[in-house]
Design a protein around this nucleic acid. Structure first.
Length: 565
RNA sequence: GCGCCUGUAGCUCAAUUGGAUAGAGCGACAGACUACGGAUCUGUAGGUUGUGGGUUCAAAUCCCGCCGGGCGCACCA
């Protein structure tokens, strides 16, 4: 068997092939006249009476042939070979669904596979080593991370884990915007705080950063350097303030993310890119390709040639570059580092920016579809029924650190992942901070801990048998709750792949909830540790593989899998 | 005004990308082990999927028009 495929994939492929062959035969015999091509999609119905696997392909063919689905389904079934397969029975249901009922052999094989792969169960090689760069958070180094950053961090990290699991080579990157106007303003703001604390009469620049954190940083700077910075010449002094502020703030952002269980593969500095002359080189290249022209004393990029609704200024009339140039340069740099596919996770305030960025890389000759932008929608903090006001202007907003302190890493990650990235979400601080059954994160963790507890109990009673799949009589697992659980566990590798492809980590949470629910049902209906040794062994085995799947899924989500709670 | 996102149970959200009777959690109500963790399980109530049309065997999903919410539309980043 193919080590890097999954049992469920092979079963589905087998069914697909049999259907394809049946369709061919039906065509030959004239039962499906004129029909050309079928996209056979196999799914697992949620209702047991609809079989283990099902497909609606007959209806699709029916609509092309202007015939009804049921008779097409009938034709397919007539020529369907069930020889040497798990398929026991095929039903035609409703408007023409084909429902496949399988013997449990495939499930036993799938469940044996979990044991063999252990922590690697769920990984596949479908991604074929494709190199993917995921850039996310990339907050300005002008203040602490906020709750939207926390959401982006959860989504980006989980997506990275999902893609890694399905055989992609993934890099997580944080882009440090340590050049440009906003860090100049940061430097001036720090200087004002510095002077204030040295007793001078200095005021913050207009629109300066008012947050308290700059006062702390000023204090530290005085602790290290005293008032010596005041004597430096203007431009050097400015650079020193800038460099100090940026390094302190980036440092603490890094700390915050580490506390979130998130480690990046790279932190890339905009300043570094500028020092290499990357923006100038990019601009030159755009000009050489004929996409730059002059108007009103400024230089413009012909982004309209790539679907933008207007051309964009790239060099202002004063001679300064706009932000677009280093940004295009940065994405060019990503391609040059050998990545096949780029994913950016951006905030909703940047969606207007996507078209011109794509235009930029298209103008340089890179395929624009290789840049994919995911917009992580806004987060609204709620406490009970009250919306928590956040105003950045007043320097008061809930930081990611405060959020983590109040709700904890696991609840935060879980909450942010529960919702599709595109949905505007309400984060209920009361609920997330609550350690009770109202908090959904515990539902999944509890299932994991409960399994650990069974094994503690088994060990104590000295009834822990050899558990390898070869020692188990799988045919003893035949209760509906056992079958249901095994089916879910068998689906995990395909789920991981599909969820990663769809870029919807929220479905991973969904999946975990389903597994936890199936386990809890199994637990109440089936006694694990009992008189019947063979049955106990089989159920212990099932509990163990369920625990493996929960642990693997939780790990991908960045949520811990506790042995006890 | 133009563009992107969005509207689903009292609340927060799903729905395998066009499939079968639209599902979970929380909240409400009614029940459940003298053994493995009750942070659990089983059931009940709760819906014209914002709205009006269209496409087809089939629409929450796709197309068009309205209505409501969020966010963008700089020689800011």
């Amino acid at each position: 068997m193919d080590e890097n495929s999954s049992v469920i994939k092979r079963v589905q492929a087998d069914i697909k092939e049999r259907i394809a062959k049946a369709i061919e035969k039906a065509k030959e015999k004239g039962d499906l006249p004129g029909y050309v091509e079928a996209d056979i999609k196999i799914h697992m119905p949620s209702k047991p009476e609809q079989g283990d696997f099902a497909t609606g392909v007959a209806m699709a063919i029916g609509s092309e042939l202007k015939s009804d689905g049921r008779s097409v389904a009938g034709a397919i079934v007539r020529y369907l070979s069930l020889e040497d397969s798990w398929i026991r029975r095929v039903d035609i249901a409703g408007p023409g669904f084909l429902n496949f009922f399988l013997s449990t052999g495939w499930l036993q094989e799938a469940v044996a596979d979990i044991w063999k792969k252990g922590p690697l169960y769920g990984t596949t090689d479908y991604g074929a080593g494709k190199k993917v760069l995921i850039e996310f958070v990339s907050a300005n180094p002008t203040g602490p991370l906020n709750v939207v950053n926390a959401r982006a961090a959860a989504i980006g990290d989980c997506l990275a884990a999902l893609l890694e699991a399905s055989g992609h080579k993934v890099s997580r990157e944080f882009y440090i915007n340590d050049a440009g106007n906003q860090v100049d303003l940061l430097a001036d703001s720090l200087e004002a705080r510095y002077r204030q604390q040295l007793g001078q009469d200095a005021s913050l620049p207009e629109n300066g950063y008012r947050g308290e954190y700059l006062m702390h940083i000023a204090k530290e700077l005085i602790g290290e350097k005293g008032d010596s910075l005041l004597e430096l010449p203007d431009s050097e002094r400015h650079d020193r303030f800038k460099q100090y502020a940026v390094s302190r703030i980036v440092g603490s952002q890094k700390q915050t993310l580490l506390g979130y269980g998130l480690e990046y593969d790279s932190w890339l500095s905009e300043k570094g890119l500028r020092a290499e002359g990357a923006p100038e080189a990019t601009l030159k290249q755009l000009a050489e390709r004929g996409f730059i022209y002059e108007k009103d004393g400024a230089q413009w990029f012909k982004s309209t040639e790539f679907g933008d609704d207007k051309d964009r200024v790239v060099v202002k009339s004063e001679g300064e570059m706009t932000y677009l140039v280093p940004d295009i340069a940065y994405h060019k740099n990503k391609f040059e580092r050998g990545f096949d596919h780029l994913i950016d996770i951006l905030g909703p305030d940047h969606h207007g920016y996507v078209t011109r960025l794509k235009a930029g890389i298209a103008a340089l000759g890179f395929p624009p579809e290789s840049l994919e932008v995911i917009i992580a929608q806004t987060v609204r903090l709620v406490r009970g029924n009250q919306v928590v006001k956040m105003s950045k202007r007043g320097g008061e907003f809930v930081t990611m650190d405060e959020l983590l302190e109040e709700a904890g890493k696991d609840a935060c990650r879980f909450f942010f992942l529960m919702r599709a990235p595109s949905s505007h979400l309400d984060f209920d601080l009361d609920l997330a901070g609550l350690q009770s059954d109202e908090n959904p994160v515990y539902y999944v963790q509890y299932a994991h801990a409960r399994i650990a507890s069974i094994f503690r109990q088994a060990r104590q009673e000295g009834v822990l048998p050899a558990l390898g799949p070869n020692e188990i009589d799988f045919s003893l697992l035949r209760e509906p709750s056992e079958i249901q659980l095994m089916k879910l566990l068998a689906a995990f590798p395909e789920e991981v792949y599909e969820i990663g492809q769809a870029r919807e980590p929220n479905r991973l949470i969904n999946y975990m909830m389903n597994v936890a629910s199936a386990f809890h049902s199994f637990y109440t209906q089936c006694r694990v540790l009992g008189e019947d040794k063979a049955l106990s062994a089989a159920r212990l085995y099932l509990a163990r593989v369920c625990q493996i799947v929960l642990a693997n899924a939780l790990r991908m989500a960045g949520v811990s899998a506790p042995e006890s709670m």
